[in-house]
Computed example of a mutant assay.
Amino acid sequence: MARYTGPTSKIARRFNEPIFGPDKALNKKAYPPGQHGRGRRKKQSEYAVQLMEKQKVKYMYGMLEKQFENLFHKAATMPGITGDNLLALLEARLDNAVYRLGIASTRRAARQLVGHKHITVNGEVVNIPSYHLRAGDVVGVREKSKSLEAINTSLSVRNSRQFSWLEWDGKEMVGKFINAPARELIPEKITEQLIVELYSK
């Protein structure tokens, strides 16, 4: 499975953003990790800035290099703006939808729920985190899994913020993927144009 299993706080500090969810380490150590984290840093090259942005998004959505590259090429062949297409494809991943719906507190946890067959799509169990949702697909919690403590805890502290491209029925524990979101609706701080420029070299 394509997933990062290393330390999360180090990565969050490298990008100075809570990539894997809220992280106290960012408040305590607001500088990059490593021996020279506090030291003077040289001005980054254009390539370094572009690479950092790509790596940030990869970690954020839990993907490895080849998988991300394939998704980018798919976005490039679609009509419209490549950067917007890329983010729309990322948001349409099943593990991301599970996270956005509040069934899991982080994308990592969402990936685990999908992999362990706790999630259904249109009534059928799907255990592929990268499964691509289409407009109208219904994502739900498997009947046998509705009593899982991890799911109920996550739903109990579910962020009140609603996403316009998703609908949620708390009583039935099902959500609907209405359509791929427009760029301005995605809350993450991502400069997708840097990624497009990197792959265009």
Rank of each mutant, 00 (worst) to 15 (best):
T5N: 15
Y4C: 05
R134Q: 15
L198G: 07
G123Y: 11
R158V: 05
G140I: 01
S45H: 02
V57E: 02
P7S: 09
I11N: 08
Y47R: 13
P18Y: 10
E46D: 14
Q55T: 01
H132M: 15
L194E: 06
H36L: 15
R100C: 04
M78I: 10
E184Y: 13
K117R: 07
P33A: 08
T77K: 15
Y47K: 08
A12N: 09
G140S: 11
T5H: 15
S45E: 01
Y131V: 10
A48F: 13
V98D: 00
V141K: 00
I19K: 04
R100D: 05
S9P: 05
G37P: 05
V157Y: 13
K10D: 15
G37K: 02
Y59L: 02
N179L: 14
A2W: 14
H36N: 14
G6W: 05
R107C: 02
W165K: 01
R41K: 15
T153M: 12
R142K: 12
Q55G: 01
K43P: 10
F72C: 08
V141M: 08
S147C: 06
P187A: 05
S9E: 11
L155R: 11
G170A: 06
D84T: 07
E91I: 09
L94F: 03
K117T: 13
A135C: 08
R40C: 10
Q193M: 07
K43Q: 09
M60R: 06
V57T: 09
V125P: 03
A135I: 11
S9G: 04
E124G: 03
H73Y: 10
Y47E: 11
Y199M: 04
K43M: 12
L101T: 06
I151E: 05
N85E: 09
K171P: 13
E53K: 06
T106Q: 06
P79V: 08
Q67R: 08
E53C: 12
K10H: 12
R161G: 12
T106S: 09
V126F: 01
A92I: 07
Y47D: 15
P18G: 01
R14Y: 05
S160I: 12
A48P: 13
P7F: 00
M60C: 11
Y199G: 00
K74T: 12
D84E: 13
A48E: 15
L148W: 13
G80K: 00
Q112F: 04
W165N: 00
L86W: 01
D137W: 00
R100T: 04
K24F: 09
I103R: 03
S130P: 02
E124Q: 15
L101N: 04
E167Q: 07
K58V: 01
A12H: 04
P79N: 12
N85P: 03
S164N: 09
G170M: 11
K74F: 11
